[in-house]
Design a protein around this nucleic acid. Structure first.
Lengths: 149, 149
DNA sequence: TATTGTTATACTCTATAACTATA
DNA sequence: TATAGTTATAGAGTATAACAATA
């Protein structure tokens, strides 16, 4: 297990963000394990479910992963029976990726588990504090895009 | 450059923490480049400056890096003339790592640059919002240790 | 010619195992 | 026997380059 954070580092934004992410990541990984997927695969399923239809390259762009990485990601999800590739009729170079029925069901359950992890993770802040934290992070991460659409 | 975040992901804590870290990390890397060190090397210098004396293994433990990784890290800092190894007299297996005068000076300037990046990064939140965010992250990351000393 | 998906390859980062010296 | 530092090696993860199919 990790040691108590050194005081010099404990006030640095980078350190705090990194370790918050590490701890949340461990909790999410544990919560998702029973569903046989990891956090990134869940993100792929969520994206494909929300924005249809997406080709592999379009999904890769939105998730900020390389297209070669996306091939392996979709391979994995397809092996698990959660998504299917089909050729686009509009552009036969593109693979439209869609969730199977199994994939939709898995997404529903796994995402509920993830939301519960988020809730427990933020619990020490109280309801209001948790909402403030999420809002602040949204300003920092998404705020830029408001002005550059 | 990255695309605007997909709406399904923009409310997820993991996504927000990850991307906040990515953006801050890019800004910090750019700000530190003139000083010839990266964020982790700065963390090593800060730690060695704050807690003296530390052996390589002790420093590795506090920074949560493998001892073999620490060897390479110290090698790099030593090549740059920022730290020096010396055998501990109490236990000749241990390398005490200490900052050189150049290292102290570099730390001072580079850490000022890092603090300025943090300040600018948090500026959209206002002073109070920035303080609230840091406090909330400290509760999430450090809070646990209060009860387990 | 350019783009999409794919494969093979190379690269980066970190961890594991084995060795030396010290305890 | 165990620990600290080191080195060499292996592994995971990702990116780069080249290729086939399609536009």
């Amino acid at each position: 297990m990790a040691q108590r954070p050194p005081e010099v580092l404990a006030s640095r934004l980078g350190y705090l963000l990194k370790h918050a992410q590490i701890r949340l990541g461990e909790a999410v990984a544990a919560a998702l394990a029973p569903y046989g997927i990891d956090a990134r695969e869940l993100a792929v399923l969520s994206l494909l479910s929300a924005e249809y239809p997406l080709s592999q390259l379009e999904a890769a762009g939105k998730l900020n992963v390389d297209r070669t990485t996306m091939v392996a990601l979709i391979d994995g999800l397809e092996d698990k029976g959660l998504v299917e590739r089909r050729r686009s009729n509009q552009d036969r170079r593109k693979n439209i990726v869609e969730l199977t029925e199994t994939g939709k069901e898995r997404l529903r359950k796994a995402d509920a588990a993830r939301r519960e992890v988020d809730r427990l993770f933020l619990a020490p802040l109280g309801l209001e504090g948790a909402e403030q934290l999420v809002s602040a992070l949204q300003v920092l991460v998404i705020g830029d895009w408001e002005s550059a659409p």
